[in-house]
Design a protein around this nucleic acid. Structure first.
Lengths: 182, 182
DNA sequence: CACCCCATGTAAAGAGTTACATGATTTT
DNA sequence: AAAATCATGTAACTCTTTACATGGGGTG
């Protein structure tokens, strides 16, 4: 499971509390892997039990902050997961299901569903996300500054997001043109 | 939930049994929305109870084929779902988590994880999927042949897959070049 | 003190995966 | 008739989401 490993990655960068993790998952980290605070607390609990991480400070008590850090066992578990092979992520986008549904509804009974508005909406949203990613790239990886091997990896991750959003934007543009012409 | 609507879309195109649905989800339809036969049978049961679809033939009995077709209620439910707004689908790709993990493992303790091999593997796999999508486009939508409005929608869906895979391929190529240089 | 916010947590339902089971049909 | 295969289904588990609950600390 990747959530465990995403959390350990973030804790390795800097130990923190569950709430701070949830905030990170809402910001940069969460652009590539999302999690709610409920998931995070549950995983933290499991990982503590398994001895992958440890809380610096007090035992469980509501309302009390608990700072987590990765243990050696967690670090080696992360390294071993890293070396494993993973499957490609499938597309599974509801917009595409809606388009197929609109096609068959129109073809089999004359219901005409306006799917173009939804496609235009997606195009705008993809543009917004793209702008966020490009801002991250410009801010964290300015052109011309020296980059370590770790920086190169992080930059490649951001650029995956940029490529992904650019691809959707271009597709929306082209598909809308084709569908509006017909 | 989209699985319900993906199933109805497929049943509208042509009524069929659960097993045939599972086969379709393994082929063309499944390239954009995946489901196992267990999920499909569970959804079919729920949808039959809700009156969205009906089985032409015998009641529940193991081993007996049951042909499903969409009812009017199902059709209008599908149309109304089609008109709803959906959120963008987040990226959530384990390869990107592995890359960030490899970055932090290298930066904080000198563990060097070979992530390039996994990236090359993904590049090959994306190439294979792209070839499948392009074969579908060439076979089902040959250039120059007339296309209905429904055909244009279906083609746009296939091209979303092509754009998606092309984007990953280009990213893999560029990221590998950058990382191998460093 | 009353109020509000924040960090932490519980509960329940939805969605997906994996493993297994049973009746019918086909093959040998 | 035995074996293999297919269509259907159950069970258990994991992951995710949504809604709600509780304790502590700060502010008016």
């Amino acid at each position: 499971m990747s959530l465990t490993h995403a959390i350990m990655t973030s804790l390795l960068e800097k130990p923190c509390t569950g709430a701070e993790l949830a905030r990170r998952f809402d910001k940069s980290l969460g652009y590539f892997w999302q999690a709610t605070h409920q998931q995070i607390y549950r995983e933290l609990g499991k990982m503590e039990l398994s001895g992958l991480i440890a809380a610096h400070g007090m035992p469980t008590a509501r309302g009390q902050q608990r700072q987590f850090a990765v243990l050696a066992a967690g670090r080696s578990e992360l390294a071993s997961w890293c070396a494993q092979e993973g499957a490609l992520r499938p597309i599974k986008d509801a917009l595409l299901v809606r388009m197929r549904a609109a096609a068959v509804l129109g073809a089999t009974g004359g219901d005409t569903v306006d799917i173009l508005t939804e496609m235009r909406r997606h195009m705008l949203l993809h543009g917004e996300v793209l702008a966020r990613y490009e801002a991250i790239e410009a801010h964290d990886f300015p052109a011309g500054s020296p980059r370590s091997a770790a920086d190169e990896l992080q930059l490649a991750v951001v650029r995956a997001g940029i490529a992904y959003e650019n691809s959707w934007l271009a597709w929306c543009h082209q598909a809308l043109a084709a569908l509006e012409a017909g």
